[in-house]
Nucleic acid binder design. Structure first.
Lengths: 339, 339
DNA sequence: GTGAAAGCGCTAACAT
DNA sequence: ATGTTAGCGCTTTCAC
C-alpha cells in the first residue's frame, strides 16, 4: 500500500540515507540527485511513517490536554486556543475528557498505560492539591487552575481570589447588599471554587458586611442547569438576594433563566455577574457581566512551559506559578438598579 | 529514565518475550513467573513505549477529527461525543481545526505530511463534494455532513432537506407567512446550507407561498454575531419577517438578541427556529425551538464506519451513506402568535 | 555527497 | 512455558 523510504530509494537508485536527507532537508544533497529522489517521492506518493520516526526520535510530537469536558463553552474555547497554539509549535493535541472523575485524572497524570504524549496539560477538577503529587513524573505536566503545593509541576491560572473580590466589589459599588454566591463545591478537593468564595467574602467584609451562609449556594457541577437549580433553591428558601455572583458564566446563565421565569427583572431586581467570559454571555438577555480570564494567554503560557520542559529536560528551573491577567467586562446584567 | 521491556526482563531474570506476555496477557505464563515479572514491572514502573508498539503493529491507535472549530457549541458537543465514544474503542482522538480554510481541509484529507492517524472523521466546510475526491486515500475517511458523489468515503448526516422542511412547516402551521431564512452561504462549496435552503423553500411552496429573495439572508460564518448581523440587515431592509428559520442555533440566538434589542417580542412578533439542538438554546429567553440531530448517533456511526474500514481494510463494501435521525424540539420561541 | 548498517522498543514466528 | 531473534520504518554514525 503505502511506500517506505526503501522503496523510494530503490526507485531512485540511491540509498535510504539520501532519500532521508531529501525528505528532511537536513544534509546537503547534490542537485541532480535531489531531483531524481524528489521524482521518486512524488511518483510513489511517499508519506513518512510517524510511528517509526517517533520511535527513533524518542518523542511523539503529541501533547495531551485533559479537561473535565469538551462540550462546555469555557473548556471548548480553551481547548480551541490550545489546539491552535500547539499547531504553531508543530505539536498535535490529543484530548481526554475526565468528566470530573478523580480516577480518570489520576490515570492521566500517571501516564495512562503508555508514554503516548510528550507533555500533558491538565485542568484538574476532582483532585485536590496534595493528590496531584504522587505520580511517576515521566513527562512534563502543566496544571491549569490548581496549584501543586510541593511545586511538582508548572501551573497557569488567574488570580481567582482577586478576580472574585473585584466582581463582588463591583456589585457592592452599585448598591447591592444581599449578594448571593452560586458555585460552592464543598464536595470537591478542587481549589478554584474555594478561592472564588474567599474573594467574594473578602469583598463583603471589606464593605463592612458579614457573609451570610444563606446566600452561599453550593452546586454539583457547573452547568446552566446547576445555576438554575441553585437560583431556584435560593429563591425558594426566601433568601431574597439583590445580586448574584456566579462562579462560572454557565451558572450565571442558569440563574438568569430562573430570574426571568420568576418574573424578576435584571438588573433592576437582580444584578448578575459571572466568571469565564464565554461568548454566550454577550448574547444573553441582558448581556452578562463577567470576569474574563485571558484565555489566549493561558493557552500560550501553558504551551511555553511545556516546550521549556520538553526541550530542556535537564533544566532545574523551579516550577513556575504563572498568573495570567483577567478583566471585568461590565455589561447590562449588572447595571445600576433603577427601582 | 523510563525502563524498557529488556530492563524488566533482566531484573526478573526472564526473557523479554515472557515480560511481553505478562504485559499483554496474551499467552499463558506460569503463575510463579508471572508474579516475579509483575514485581519487576511494578518496581521499575514500566510503561510501554507507544511508538514502538505502533511501529510494530502498523497502527497508531489514533484517529483524527477535523472540524471547522472547537469553540462553537455544536462542534464542541460533537467532539465531546466522538472523543468519548472513541475511548470505548480504545482509540485516542487528535483534533484539528480547519477554521473553514479549504487549504487546511485539503491538507488533512491528503494525510498532512505523515501517516499519523488510522482514520479520519472530517466535517468539511469550505470544500465542496467534487473537491473531496482527489486524495491519496491512505486511511479511511468518514465525512460528516457532506456527501462525496463518487462514493469515495462513508458519510454520516441528517436529512437536511427534510429537517429544514419540517422546521419551516412548523412555522407555517402557526400562521407565519413571512418566514425569513438566515444562513445562506453562497460563497462556499459546502452543501449543507444549500440543502437547508432547499427544504425551506420546499415547505413554502408546499404551502402555496413563493420564496422571497428579500427574506433569504446570507451569512459569512455561523456564529451569533453573524445571526445578529443578518437579522439587523433584514430589519433595516424593511423585510418585516414574522418568523425566522436560522440554519444554526447560534445564528438563531444572534437573531433573537437583535429582536430583543429592537423591542420585538418573541414569539408574538417574531417566531424563531434554529438548527443543531445546542444546550444554550434551552436557556435562551425564550427557549429556542430547534432541529435536534441525534449527535450521539452521528458520533457512534462515524466511529463504526471507521472501525469497519480499519479492521477490514480489504473489505469492498460500498461507501455508506448513513442518515441519522433528527427531531424538532418545539419550545417557546416558536409559540403560537398571540397578537 | 552517498552507502552500509546499527538500533530505537516492541511483538511474534520459530525454536526448545 | 519460555528463550532467541527478526524486523516494523526511520535517522544517523561511521566509513568512503
Amino acid at each position: 500500500m503505502s511506500s517506505r523510504l526503501k522503496d523510494v530509494a530503490a526507485l531512485a537508485g540511491v540509498s535510504t540515507r539520501t532519500v532521508s536527507n531529501v525528505v528532511s532537508g537536513s544534509a546537503s544533497v547534490a542537485e541532480e540527485t535531489r531531483a531524481r529522489v524528489q521524482a521518486a517521492l512524488d511518483e510513489l506518493g511517499y508519506r513518512p511513517n510517524v510511528a517509526a520516526r517517533n520511535l527513533r526520535a524518542g518523542r511523539t510530537g503529541l501533547i495531551g490536554l485533559a479537561i473535565p469536558e469538551l462540550y462546555s463553552p469555557y473548556f471548548g474555547e480553551l481547548a480551541s486556543l490550545i489546539v491552535h497554539a500547539a499547531r504553531d509549535r508543530s505539536w498535535t493535541v490529543v484530548i481526554d475528557q475526565t468528566f470530573g472523575d478523580p480516577e480518570a485524572e489520576r490515570r492521566l497524570l500517571d501516564g495512562d498505560g503508555g508514554r503516548l504524549v510528550d507533555g500533558l496539560i491538565i485542568s484538574p477538577w476532582a483532585l485536590g492539591p496534595e493528590e496531584l503529587t504522587d505520580r511517576s513524573r515521566d513527562v512534563p505536566v502543566v496544571l491549569l487552575g490548581e496549584r501543586q503545593p510541593q511545586g511538582l509541576a508548572d501551573r497557569v491560572a488567574v488570580d481567582n481570589v482577586l478576580a472574585a473580590e473585584e466582581a463582588t466589589a463591583h456589585l457592592l459599588a452599585s448598591g447591592r447588599r444581599r449578594i448571593a454566591a452560586i458555585g460552592l463545591q464543598p464536595h470537591l478537593r478542587n481549589e478554584t471554587a474555594r478561592q472564588r468564595l474567599e474573594g467574594y467574602r473578602k469583598a463583603l467584609r471589606g464593605a463592612g458586611l458579614e457573609p451570610d451562609a444563606a446566600l452561599e449556594q453550593p452546586v454539583t457541577t457547573l452547568h446552566r442547569k446547576d445555576g438554575a437549580a441553585a437560583m431556584t433553591a435560593l429563591l425558594d428558601a426566601g433568601a431574597r438576594p439583590d445580586a448574584v455572583f456566579a462562579f462560572t458564566d454557565e451558572l450565571a446563565l442558569g440563574a438568569l433563566h430562573i430570574a426571568h421565569e420568576r418574573g424578576m427583572s435584571v438588573p433592576e431586581d437582580l444584578a448578575v455577574v459571572g466568571f469565564d467570559g464565554i461568548e454566550d454571555g454577550q448574547y444573553a438577555n441582558p448581556p452578562l457581566t463577567t470576569v474574563v480570564p485571558d484565555k489566549r494567554q493561558i493557552a500560550e503560557r501553558a504551551l511555553q512551559c511545556l516546550a521549556d520542559r520538553i526541550y530542556s529536560p535537564a533544566s532545574t528551573v523551579a516550577p513556575l506559578d504563572i498568573v495570567v491577567p483577567h478583566r471585568l467586562d461590565v455589561r447590562a446584567s449588572s447595571g445600576r438598579r433603577t427601582g
